[in-house]
């Protein structure tokens, strides 16, 4: 099992699973959306406040596995304070991180976003990719629609 832990359940993931950052429903927010995976019942609801073309704050709540929870938690820490254009680019990059070719090189600013590399291991578990992307898809949906639900199906 040790190899699986190195690949999939890295320390960062276990930590964010146990102590999710920005967890809960804020008093006020400008955008929100729910990500739902009907296959496993995982749910992630994201709430964000966008001001002057920038993401002021994000939080999330929901139920899910360690991968989906950690992914949502890491996402909130990285996107907070980020201009929208940059946020969209990073969301796209993250999907590449977890779905890219096995031998592909992930072009990512390791200094700023190195945490995302903890999710590279997900690639080798096709059944779990949707767990990792759920919160990110919800985030995209929130920015696109303002309010709504998105599924990974």
């Amino acid at each position: 099992m040790d190899d699986v832990f190195r690949e999939l359940y890295q320390e960062i993931i276990l930590d964010h699973n146990k102590n999710p950052r920005h967890f809960g429903v804020p008093d006020s927010y400008t955008h929100s959306a729910e990500g739902y995976n009907p296959l496993c019942g995982d749910k992630v609801h994201v709430f964000l406040t966008v001001r002057d073309g920038k993401i002021d704050s994000i939080s999330f709540k929901g139920e899910g596995c360690a991968i989906s929870k950690a992914s949502a938690s890491v996402m909130t820490t990285l996107l907070t304070g980020m201009p929208l254009a940059e946020a969209h680019a990073l969301m796209k990059r993250f999907v590449e991180v977890v779905t890219g070719p096995m031998d592909g090189i992930v072009d990512i600013d390791e200094e700023r976003f190195g945490q995302l590399l903890a999710f590279v291991g997900v690639r080798e578990f096709p059944a779990r990719v949707k767990c990792a992307t759920l919160a990110w898809h919800a985030m995209e949906a929130a920015l696109k629609q303002g309010e709504g639900s998105v599924t990974t199906e």
Binding site: V4, K18, K69, F125
Partner: peptide
């Protein structure tokens, strides 16, 4: 606190 899907993936590797 361990989600069934994490259990499933980890057991698979056993």
């Amino acid at each position: 606190d361990v989600h069934p899907h994490d259990i499933g993936t980890l057991l698979d590797h056993e």
